[in-house]
Amino acid sequence: MKIGKIKLKGKAILAPMAGVTDFAYREICMQMGAGYAVTEMVSAKALEYEDKKSFHIAELDDKTRPVAIQIFGDEPKTMALAAKKLMKYRPDAIDINMGCPVPKIAGNRSGSALMKHPELCGEIVAAIHKAVDVPVTVKIRKGWDENLINAPAVAKICEQAGAAAIAVHGRTKMQMYTGQADWNSIKAVKQAVEIPVIGNGDVTSGEKAAQMLKDTGCDFVMVGRAAMGNPWIFDDINQYLKAGTPAVKPTLDERIAVIKKHIETLCGRNGENRGMREARKHVAWYFFGLKGAAECRRRAGELSVLDDLYRLLDDVYRMNQEE
């Protein structure tokens, strides 16, 4: 199971998600069985201007490999320069964001807006491919809207420009994250190119992952929103692909231990003040499905120091302790 010269540890990949797939969460997901991960997107323009926050997002360590750093932008030269600068972190690959649908990205001709300019997509891939000696991958969408569904054509152009793999989200830009992902669009890309294809969209369990692989012929599955607060999904996918049965759900003790480790790692890296602000959303996601979840999510939004977290988790444990 390879992308270029990268040997993946499995077929399940952690998707890039801004504000979610940070250093600490990638580490947790890799430990839970993710075979590969992609960082939060980083602005190529910001890297050109030596923005410290952007470089901080891109920092890697050997606990979370293999991993790609994802960049976004719309200027081939700027993107190539950014990719070169990121080589100091020794990424296993550089991933190009051609799928982000949010207005502040797509509104500036970056992200999914690139789907409207297939030739530019190829120019960006070619420039980065020439600039770095690691595989260059691309994440695209089904298309811009229902009148411009061109994922197979864009994928082919990217392949010809040197892309080592293509990830396809089966929704258009205009759909954002609503409706159902069109897995047929992933299948169409797989039939259009020779390089590995990564399917993305509505993979919410091991069973769904197996179904996507079967229905589309894609080589890997990418998990995004379904992994928020649920890193155990990677264990479930691996177990289902291996044995055809779901993984055993984590116990309450295991859930709390993972939450602690995640947030402690986050604070250790970013400092307790900033780390706890970033932790609030993660902690709230972890509580879905537990007793008292609504009140616990409210309290998660007020976390300021690690002791706040420990007190909250003690209360969660008492409310959900198995008899």
Rank of each mutant, 00 (worst) to 15 (best):
V197A: 04
I57T: 06
D95I: 01
V189D: 13
K249Q: 13
V138L: 15
W285H: 15
K214G: 08
V223L: 09
W144H: 03
G122R: 05
M176K: 04
L309D: 05
G217N: 10
P101Q: 08
G271C: 09
A106K: 03
I57P: 00
L81R: 14
M32N: 11
L213D: 08
A126C: 07
A151T: 06
L120H: 00
K173Q: 14
S54E: 13
P91Q: 14
G122I: 02
K291L: 13
N108L: 10
G162P: 09
Y240D: 02
K88F: 08
P91H: 06
P66I: 02
A131R: 00
S185D: 05
D315A: 13
N320L: 13
R277Q: 12
S43I: 09
R269Q: 07
R109D: 10
A209F: 01
D307I: 02
Q160D: 14
D202L: 09
L303D: 05
Q70E: 11
K142E: 13
P231T: 03
A192F: 02
E146D: 15
N150P: 00
V168P: 00
T216H: 07
I237Q: 01
R274L: 10
T265L: 15
G275H: 06
K130T: 12
G33R: 11
G201Q: 10
R65I: 08
V138E: 02
E146I: 07
A113F: 08
W144A: 07
T21I: 08
I71A: 04
G143E: 10
T64K: 14
G107K: 01
L60N: 02
D145P: 03
E40K: 00
D215F: 13
V305Q: 09
E323Y: 09
V193G: 06
K214V: 11
N147Q: 15
A37P: 00
T78K: 05
E123Q: 04
Y177W: 15
Y177I: 07
I57S: 01
E75V: 13
P246F: 10
K53C: 03
A227N: 04
A161H: 03
T265R: 15
D74N: 12
